[in-house]
Amino acid sequence: MATALNKPDRTLDQRGLLCPLPVINTNKAIQELKPGQILEVLATDPGSKPDFDAWSKSRGHKILSVSQEQGPPKVFRFFIQRSG
């Protein structure tokens, strides 16, 4: 698991963008990956955590981990696995 998390197949930098753009762009980007591949997303929108959670549940993608880096601005780092 740890190695998979360290090596995303792609990284999407959404720092500085506000809702709804990070979710829209992530939804687009994950469709370009193969099922099972991992997308890393960096976001600073303060609502990122619940928003990505709701989005991933509705689309069936799996959030493998979320970490917060202290800011300002606070950066959320998601590792999301594309559904099959």
Partner: peptide, 8 residues
């Protein structure tokens, strides 16, 4: 703009 990303 968000709804289609949620499958709506």
């Amino acid at each position: 703009t968000t709804a289609p990303a949620m499958g709506i």
